[in-house]
Lab assay of single mutants.
Amino acid sequence: ATNIVGKVKWYNSTKNFGFIEQDNGGKDVFVHKSAVDAAGLHSLEEGQDVIFDLEEKQGKAYAVNLRIK
């Protein structure tokens, strides 16, 4: 899925991951530091509006192509 809109539920910059809540009511999506770095960001803030693509690997969904809304 592409261009999914959501809000950062939480992001832990020490542990380098967090979760994004989808605006469409879907399951929360894992986001890793690598996606944050690829977006040219240092971190994510709770409540921040983002747009992302959804990829699945080994049955787990995660956010890629992250951008600030």
Rank of each mutant, 00 (worst) to 15 (best):
A61G: 12
G26E: 13
H42V: 12
E46Q: 14
G59C: 04
A39M: 10
W10V: 05
A38V: 10
L54Y: 07
F19A: 02
E21W: 14
A38R: 13
N24M: 09
S13V: 12
V31N: 00
S13A: 11
K27E: 06
E56H: 15
Q48W: 14
Y11R: 01
Q48K: 09
G6V: 00
L66V: 13
N12R: 13
G26W: 11
K57D: 10
K60H: 14
G25S: 12
K33D: 02
N3D: 15
L66E: 00
S43F: 15
G6R: 01
K57P: 06
K15W: 14
R67G: 05
D49V: 15
E55H: 14
A35P: 01
I68K: 12
D23L: 15
G18I: 01
E55D: 11
D37K: 15
F52P: 00
L54D: 01
H32D: 05
K33Q: 10
E46Y: 13
W10G: 02
E56Q: 12
F52T: 02
I4H: 06
A35L: 03
I4M: 14
D49S: 15
K60A: 07
K7I: 06
K15V: 10
Y11L: 03
K69G: 06
Q22R: 15
D28H: 07
D53M: 03
S13F: 12
D53T: 05
N16I: 02
F30H: 02
Y62W: 12
K7C: 03
L41C: 04
F17D: 01
L54E: 06
S43Q: 09
Q48L: 13
K57C: 05
G25A: 09
S43V: 13
V31C: 04
V31T: 04
Q22M: 14
G18M: 01
F30V: 03
I20M: 04
T2G: 07
K57Q: 14
K33H: 07
Y62C: 04
G40D: 08
V29R: 06
A39C: 03
V64D: 05
G47H: 14
R67V: 10
K57I: 11
F19L: 05
Q22L: 13
T14P: 08
V50Q: 00
A35D: 06
S34A: 15
D37I: 13
G26D: 09
A38C: 04
V64A: 09
N24F: 14
